[in-house]
């Protein structure tokens, strides 16, 4: 037990670490977390795998009710066959939309975040701190509030978006009242199966852009301020213009801070429940449904617990693949300049 890490600690630390090598101390510190996570995190995940091979439903809920029947991989087949009662469900379309949703959001967040951070970092700019204080506001508002407020902003009659259009463009050109139903307009703007983008997607994108760029801007600002000024001076002496300085000095210093954050943002956006659930309700025709909202409806509306378990297993592997791919991409692009 005590020899587990003999190789790690160097000689001067030995007396200290020998006492701590006692694995019992470590497990004492770990015990509460291990117990709690074993019961409410890891056991449910394993239990879920078993559930995914059964027809677990409403009638199996009570402690006294009969055990569910074993159905093999039937639940997995039902999901891939789009046969899970949820109207308009299409696994490939939902997955494609989900990926596209996360990807477009992160690109916009990072580009806007970096651009605005660069703008705020210009030397001699006035009111810099005031702008920074204002721009942080979307970060501090809970996402569920952002989602519900933006839902009502896109209301065709009473929402602020259409009213803003009416009171500016509408008044200017004497147009009839503009009552576009952003979130429910049935015909898609772009539709090449499996990627279908209804107008609601762009409304969601607008709301999430408002929500997402400021934190990227803060992270970019931190990275920008850590760039030594003499690097720019050296580049200038070599005759570099603004664009060249950006490419040679700024960009390589931004990348190590922005890339892990972009990957983190990708996973967060991929699993973003509130906007899709509250703003568009997954509509129209389930076209803005994400994997997380589908998983929620399987439990909350359909009570198909077995199918929901199988769906969660799919989610796990999709996220695992995404994490591996993004980490690979991250490493590949990081070593490019290093």
């Amino acid at each position: 037990m005590t020899a587990a890490t003999a190789g790690v600690a160097g000689p001067p630390r030995r007396s200290f670490w020998r006492r701590s090598l006692n694995a019992r101390t470590a497990y004492t510190f770990m015990l509460p977390a291990l117990l709690v996570m074993a019961v409410i995190t890891f056991y449910p995940l394993v239990y879920q795998i078993w559930m995914s091979f059964t027809d677990y439903g409403l009638r199996n809920l009570k402690a006294t009710s009969p055990a569910p029947n074993y159905v093999g991989i039937n639940n997995y087949i039902r999901i891939l066959d789009n046969n899970i009662v949820i109207p308009n469900f299409d696994f490939l379309r939902v997955l494609t939309f989900n990926l596209f949703w996360a990807f477009t959001n992160v690109i916009i967040h990072v580009v806007l975040g970096v651009a605005i951070a660069l703008l705020l970092n210009v030397k001699g700019l006035r009111f810099r701190r005031l702008y920074r204080a204002v721009y942080i506001l979307p970060v501090v508002i809970p996402p569920i509030i952002v989602a519900t407020v933006w839902r009502n902003m896109f209301d065709p009659q009473y929402g602020a978006i259409n009213q803003l259009i009416n009171s500016t463009v509408g008044v200017l050109f004497k147009l009839p009242p503009f009552t576009l139903d952003w979130l429910n307009k049935p015909d898609a703007v772009f539709s090449v199966y499996p990627l279908v983008l209804p107008l609601a997607y762009f409304a969601l994108l607008a709301a999430n852009t408002w929500l997402g760029w400021p934190l990227n801007s803060v992270v970019a600002t931190g990275a920008l301020q850590s760039i030594p000024a003499d690097l720019y001076e050296a580049a200038e002496m070599d005759g570099a213009g603004a664009w060249m300085k950006f490419r040679v000095v700024t960009l390589p210093h931004l990348r190590p801070a922005m890339l892990p954050y972009a990957i983190y943002g990708f996973v967060i956006t991929f699993n973003l429940f509130y906007l899709s659930y509250f703003m568009s309700g997954g509509g129209p025709f389930g076209q803005t449904e994400l994997l997380v909202t589908t998983a929620y409806r399987l439990v909350n509306e359909q009570h198909l617990y077995g199918v929901a378990a199988a769906f969660a297993v799919f989610q796990f592997f999709i996220l695992l693949a995404l994490t591996l791919v993004t980490n690979k991409l991250g490493k590949a692009t990081a070593s490019y300049d290093a």
Binding site: M37, I40, T41, F42, Y43, P44, L45, Y47, Q48, M51, Y56, N60, L61, K62, A63, V267, N271, F273, V292, A295, Y296, L298, V299, Y305, A308, A309, A312, Q315, F316, L319, L320, T323
Partner: peptide
């Protein structure tokens, strides 16, 4: 590693098992 793997999962991914387990 186990904790990292759980971090990657959305909370909703354990909705079904937690619901049926806690219900008992």
């Amino acid at each position: 590693l186990a904790i990292l793997a759980v971090l990657m999962l959305p909370a909703i991914a354990t909705l079904a098992p937690l619901y049926v387990m806690l219900n008992k």
